[in-house]
Every structure is written in C-alpha cells, then in structure tokens.
Design a protein around this nucleic acid. Structure first.
Lengths: 225, 225
DNA sequence: GGGTTCATGTTAACCATTTAACAGCATTAG
DNA sequence: CTAATGCTGTTAAATGGTTAACATGAACCC
C-alpha cells in the first residue's frame, strides 16, 4: 500500500486533543500572549507537558529547541494540520430541533465550518430561516454539495432514514459525516464518519453518578458503626 | 481508602460501550430474539467477541457458562449497572437553541432520563413550553432539584456563566453534569462531569477528511505517471 | 566565557486496553 | 455413553497510549 502523507497516521487520542490545543491557543492569542511553554499550555488543559510535546512530535518542528512555542506560529500550524486553514464548507441534513439548534450555533461558522445549506423533506420546515440559512428541499442537496464544494455533512435525520441519506451524500461527493443518528452508517473507506451519541454520553455519566451515590452510602454506613 | 463497591472500578472505554450493548439488546428484544452469543452481539457492533466478554467480566455472571446470553436477563442487568433501572430525574439548564433541542429530544425520556425542568435567566424564554416542560426562571432551580430529587443536570448555558451555574448546581445536590459549554468545569471529586464538545468532534472529523483528500490526490498523481 | 536555568525533541519505561488462547460446561448427534 | 460442537469465563499475550527521563540548544547573569 502507498505510504500515507506526513501527519496522517496519528493516534485517535492525539487527534482529539488537537482541537483543545487550538482553542486554548486562540484564547491566549486573544489576550495578547506571544509565547507559551509546553508546561503552561499543558497545565491549563489538565494534561502532562510530556504528552503535549509527544503529540506535537507527530507533526514535527513547531519551534526551535530551547525556546517556548510562539502562539502566532502554532495557531496557523494547528489549523493547517486539522484541515481548517481554509473554511470547510458544511451542510446540515435534517432540520428538526437538533438540526435547527446546530444551524443557530454560530460557533461552527466561527471555528471554520460555514453552513452552506440546511435540508429536509418536511414541507412545513422548508423556507424557515436560521441565521441566514433557509431550509431547502432535500432534492436540492446534491446540487448545493457540488456547486459549493461541500465536503462535510452534519446528519440529524431520524435513524430510519440515516443510511439512505448517507448513500446520497456519499454519491454526491461528501467525504466526512458527523452523525447524530443513533445508528452505525455503512460507508466506503474513503469516507470518514464520526458518531455523536448523546445517549452514550448521558448513560456513561449515569454510571459514574451511581458509583458516587453508592460510595457515599457506604460512607454513611461506615459512620453509623 | 475504602474499597469501592463491586463494579465501579471499570475502565472508561468499557463504560462507553455499555450503552451500545444495551441499545442493541433492546433492539433484539423488540424483534423477539431470546438468546444471543457474544460473537453475534459483538459482530453487530463491529467489535471483537473477546472484548465484549472481557467487558462483561467486570460485572460477572450474566449467564451460565456454555450457554449464550439471555436477552431478557441481560437488558435489566445492564440497566442496573448503568444506573437507569429507575428513571434518573434530570434538568436542563439553559433554554437556548441547544437546550430547546434537547428538551424536544424525547429519546432522553424514553432512555430513562425524564426531564423535570428547564431553566433560564432570559425573561423572553421563561414560559415557553417544550413537550410539557415549561421554561422556568433559574431562581426556581434549587427548589426543583431538591423537591424532585434531581441528580443529573444538562448544562447548555454560555461558557461565561457555566462555572457560576455549576457551583449552584453542586450546592443544590446535583451529582452529574452533562456539560455542553466549551470549558472545563471545576467540581468536587464527588461530582461527575462529562464534557460534550461539538467543536472537538467536527474538527477531528475534519482532520480525517483532510487526510482522505490528500491521499486521493496522491493516488491521482500516481496514476498520472 | 562559563554556569545556571528553562525550554524542546526524542527515546525509553510504564501502564491500560485490546485481542487471542484456552479450560470447562451444556447441548446434540451418533 | 462418547465425541463433537458451541458457548462462556478467565488468564495471558500483544498492542497502543501515557508518562518519565534525558540529551541538547538558547538565553541570561555574573
């Protein structure tokens, strides 16, 4: 198999930290900080400095050794690595409550993912306006994807329709799908999917809550002895 | 230190799979499947059977050895482990677009997390009705938490207010916080937090999209030779 | 200039998670 | 009854990720 381009065989765990680094660095930049050491940055994110350096090491040379990182260089470097040096055109498929919430969530735009369209099959939703994006009929989807060079789709349709919609998206040239439907999508290996399962999140929280409540019961029992 | 109760020192990775097992098992139950082997269940979730058995092993004895798992026993067992054998009373704090979307997302209720209140400080939002839950002034929050025995709060307020609200929640007796604000909350060790960062999700997707696009460019170059 | 301090890049040790291997029980067919 | 098959529970090996250690470079002070 052909060797991958530099910087693409990186552990998932590292990839998930890159946005956190970027966010914190942008914050520092906004308040005028010019230099930051791996220790400072790591402590503010509650991780070890060695881990941060290890993460950066996959991409190589953000600074000359012996000198702290320069915020002004790191921010664009990370943006390039993450792939948001240029705005990444995005659409939302499914204009239900969640789709609407995401369309209104202007942070997406600010962070480099401008919404180029919202689509639904429900005639009652078509025409509604969210921050300048008007809900369109799903028949328009393929045209917008191609005309606007959309690469990422946020999928908020009901689980029952998710796979069918996915196949249309893939055929139209979508390369990344941010899937909020509680179901696993089948896609070719040339398409990336990230599943966002709210139920998983709240249930894993529930597990920990149960453990906390149990251990505090234990404590009370112990005190009663 | 006091020894933890059975089944609480479990790796995070395992905890995150429990809801997936439960969901799939409920689906099987709905279509009348009575028995399921670790292999069948694992394959339908795209994981290894040995991993599933290893996960279950933390909690012990779901079946007699030599016989497949019984769906009807596994479902309540997992519900008990996750802590949703009884409904887990929940509130939503912040009735912006995301809070509204979650309030309307009836799956939460079905999966064991009935919404006992939605709160905001914005007078324009107070009184709005979402599936029977009326947005209340945040001053009512502590009362509802105590009266209804609420243990989990879903936090969808702006980042700037997240820490202050968190402190009120903790003081009122909340044990788990599902945090959608893009910031790290400081809480005592007796409170569990799960951060849901949409920006992290879409950026990690963007990274993979970039890699896919680069490698397909490479391929094209190779074909041109 | 030399020593001290603080920094990164890099490698190695450590730890956690995932996967494989296998021992033992239940059922079924011959 | 015995052998073969299919299954789980459990332990061991392999993999992957995190943390510590260290070599080396840059700036600063005396």
């Amino acid at each position: 198999m052909r060797k991958q381009r530099k910087g693409c065989d990186v552990p998932d765990a590292t990839i998930l930290r890159l946005p956190l680094y970027l966010e914190k660095l942008k914050l520092l930049q906004a308040i005028g900080v010019e230099d930051v050491s791996s220790r400072q940055l790591a402590e503010s994110l509650d991780i070890k400095a060695s881990q941060l350096r290890h993460d950066f090491h996959y991409f190589g040379g953000f600074s000359r050794p012996g000198r702290p990182y320069q915020v002004a260089k790191l921010v664009p470097a990370l943006e390039k690595i993450i792939g948001i040096a240029e705005p990444v055109h995005t659409i939302i498929v499914g204009a239900g409550h969640l789709g609407q919430a995401l369309a209104n969530y202007q942070n997406l735009d600010i962070q480099g993912f401008p919404i180029k369209g919202i689509f639904d099959v429900n005639p009652k939703l078509i025409g509604l306006d969210f921050r300048g994006s008007v809900v369109q009929d799903m028949d328009e989807m393929e045209t917008v994807i191609k005309d606007q060079g959309v690469k990422i789709a946020i999928l908020t349709v009901p689980a029952a329709h998710a796979q069918a919609v996915t196949e249309r998206l893939v055929a139209a040239g979508i390369v990344g799908i941010f899937n909020f439907a509680p179901m696993d999508l089948k896609v070719p290996t040339t398409v990336a999917v990230r599943n966002e399962r709210l139920a998983v999140g709240i249930m894993s929280l529930s597990f920990k809550v149960k453990c906390i409540l149990q251990s505090s019961e234990n404590k009370e029992e112990a005190e009663e002895l």
